[in-house]
């Protein structure tokens, strides 16, 4: 009964606080839309110079890039400075690749292209590129989109839940509530359910928007995406309310973001996890986003189902339960029983 009272009160607060409600739903949508436009822009067109190249190879490469033959006496250095991404020298039988080198993603693209076009050099084999995951029209946004969907849900739920639990303390209502016979676990549970209900709505809208409007790659079942985002949001909500015990005001709550929320991106798979220094790599498995992002990628990119994500879901649930228990314990500061 008391739990329900807390739940109803939180939902009523949401309904009368339209701006916060809008922030939690509209802000992630705007950011995701902007990112999709930033990363889904026009295809990269490579500009290559070739020297002493056989006609067949040039033809082959022209399918993928803007290829220009270069006179063999022209210095390579000046050509590269002249806005070429790379120069390939086929002289003397050996292939030599000179890269402009300032943009690693272009470097990779050039190397890939050269390798794939030289495969068919002597045999007239059609180049057929096949992908294990994704396809040749998969944009980079498809690749990290799932991580960002998870991140923004985590970020906004963390912030709003943390601040509203903190406000409960600064405006004195926490003390007033604790002067009633409510139990500490009832209060925390009420918070989780109240915010959880709203978060479900928020996650559903953001996920629907990302998949059907932004057209993020979606191979798996939508239901799983909902389940993952809900679990992720729960961990954000419980972590936010827990950390709010250690903040004196809203500003201090916001100071937790660069410390607690942003570093989670580093371990979410947005950057290659294998290259993280060993001094840091142990942090990843301690962050909720690590599991949420993994599960979202499994479903959205690889089209996997429950058998592949249940561990992630379970770990996220575990995080939430631990944070809840810690929060119930932290409330002891305000009333022992």
């Amino acid at each position: 009964m008391r739990i329900i009272a807390v739940v109803i009160r939180i939902l009523r607060q949401f309904i009368s606080d339209k701006r916060t409600m809008a922030l939690m739903i509209v802000a992630p949508i705007i950011i995701l839309t902007m990112l999709s436009l930033v990363f889904n822009g026009e295809d990269l067109e490579l500009k290559l110079g070739v020297r002493n190249a056989p006609e067949s190879i040039v033809e082959q490469m022209e399918k993928h890039a803007n290829v220009k033959p270069i006179a063999s006496d022209e210095p390579i250095e000046s050509t590269l400075k002249n806005d070429y991404d790379a120069v390939i020298d086929f002289g003397n039988g050996a292939k030599k690749l000179y890269l402009e080198g300032s943009d690693p993603s272009i470097n990779r693209a050039v190397i890939n292209m050269v390798q794939s076009s030289s495969m068919g050099k002597n045999q007239e084999v059609d180049l057929e590129v096949s992908y294990l995951f994704g396809s040749n029209d998969m944009s980079s946004f498809d690749h990290f989109g799932p991580v960002l969907v998870g991140f923004f849900i985590f970020f906004f739920v963390f912030l709003i839940a943390g601040v509203s639990f903190l406000r409960e303390r600064t405006q004195g209502t926490l003390e007033r509530v604790l002067a009633t016979p409510i139990k500490r676990w009832e209060l925390v549970t009420g918070y989780v359910i109240g915010f959880g209900l709203f978060t479900m709505l928020q996650s559903a809208i953001i996920a629907l928007y990302s998949i059907y409007v932004i057209d993020l790659m979606m191979e798996g079942a939508f239901l799983y995406v909902l389940l993952i985002t809900l679990m992720l949001a729960l961990s954000a909500l419980t972590l936010g309310t827990l950390l709010s015990s250690f903040a004196k005001n809203e500003l201090q709550m916001i100071q937790f973001i660069p410390l607690v929320v942003v570093p989670q991106i580093f371990f979410s798979g947005l950057f290659n996890l294998d290259t993280i220094s060993n001094y840091l790599s142990w942090i990843g498995p301690l962050t909720p986003l690590y599991y949420g992002a993994d599960a979202l990628r499994s479903v959205m990119i690889k089209g996997q189902g429950l058998t592949d994500i249940w561990i992630d879901l379970l770990v996220l649930l575990g995080f939430s339960i631990v944070f809840m228990i810690l929060n119930i314990y932290a409330l002891k500061k305000h009333r022992r029983i």
Binding site: R9, S16, Q171, G172, T173, E175, R176, V177
Partner: peptide, 10 residues
């Protein structure tokens, strides 16, 4: 309490 512990948005 000495401070009005009320939910302003309600």
């Amino acid at each position: 309490a000495q401070a009005d512990a009320l939910y302003g948005e309600l």
